[in-house]
Simulated assay, not measured.
Amino acid sequence: MINAYSLNGSMKSLVPTDGLKHVPADIVWLDLVDPTAQEDAYVETLLGISIPTRDDLKDIEPSSRLYVEKDSVFMTASLVWRADGDDPQLTDVAFILTGGLLVTVRYAEPKSFKLFIAALGRGEPTGDGLTMLGRLLETIADRTAEILEHTVDRIDTLSTDIFRDRGKRRPPQFLEGKLAEISETHRLVSKVRDSLGSLSRLLTFLINVPIVHKKETEGSLCRTVAHDVETLSEHASFIAGNIAFLLDASLGLINVEQNAIIKIFSIASVVFLPPTLVASIYGMNFQFMPELNWHLGYPLAILCMMLSAIIPFFFFRWKGWL
């Protein structure tokens, strides 16, 4: 699908059969959403440039993601997609500046694009393609900041659930469930950090493009967004450190709980070992055992077994091991 956005923010769809030989002058943004081969060829004919395919976007070489060709600037960045769900992913998006026009090629629906298009729908002035790109990157940075804010809230909730009411013993299964949530949060933050690194490289490249130097307002906007991305990267690193601490603490608490269980079994074994020894002695079937003829032999053996169990128990209590 090809969506075209004009100077006043209005949208219309372009199809390969609409008979256009060139892009209308009032169009500043062409948004190719999951384009077909026919739509790629149509836009290439209109603009005289090569549109990156899905396989081209997956190329990780800097020379394939950031380059200038025939006065057209080609940039590719990885954006976080489905961050609000259980399976966050990265999707590669191409940004092309050519002849004062912005062209984007994407095969997913990042929320940042929806937010930006909604803002255009309110009739806000857009400017040329470079201005549109700067504002779009600003929206992407704002959306990334929102994801990190939600992640911080999620970490606070996890921390509260794990560390509150420490006087109350909890089964290891509870903490193991929290480990799964910590893992999901860590995966999301990792995706965000990868996305921010990609955006940082894109903005560094864009700021040094000659077309940006000629426009002070757009250049200032790009530099502001680059500073925001750098700040968000530092914040994401701080969040990743908190997640690592939470993970280590959870594993430590699980070990403490498991050690407490093992300690109970160990103490039980030590407490019942002396009575077992007494019972084993008098359970032997030798013919000459003087105690077998005692009238009080049975109650004395029982008393001996009870004392041999009670004395270690109170000794452990006195030592504070129970």
Rank of each mutant, 00 (worst) to 15 (best):
Q38C: 04
I60K: 15
S200G: 14
A249S: 15
F116E: 04
S280P: 03
F272I: 01
T98M: 05
W294F: 11
V152T: 10
K168D: 12
Y5I: 09
S195Y: 05
E138H: 14
T131Q: 11
F113V: 12
D165P: 00
T160F: 10
F265Q: 09
A301K: 05
K263D: 00
F238D: 01
E234S: 12
W81A: 08
I27R: 07
D194A: 14
V212T: 08
I262M: 15
T91H: 09
I262L: 13
D161C: 04
M305E: 05
S159H: 12
T144K: 01
E291K: 01
T231D: 09
G283H: 10
V23L: 09
F265V: 01
A141I: 07
L102K: 09
S112D: 08
A226F: 11
Q38I: 13
G99S: 13
R201Q: 14
L303C: 13
L46T: 06
L136C: 05
H186P: 00
P24A: 05
L202T: 08
G177W: 05
T139F: 05
G127H: 10
I239G: 01
G320F: 05
M306P: 00
I162C: 08
P62D: 13
I207F: 04
R169K: 11
D156Q: 12
S50T: 15
I96E: 06
R154Y: 09
G134K: 07
G121S: 06
A4P: 03
R122A: 06
G85K: 08
E176R: 13
H227K: 14
A108L: 01
R106A: 08
E149Y: 08
S220E: 15
G219T: 10
L273F: 14
L7D: 06
E291Y: 03
D153P: 00
D87R: 11
D87P: 00
E184C: 03
L102F: 07
A180W: 07
R122L: 07
D40G: 06
V189N: 15
S13V: 11
S63C: 04
V23W: 02
K263S: 02
D92P: 03
L136P: 02
T45F: 03
N293I: 02
H235K: 12
T231H: 10
G241N: 13
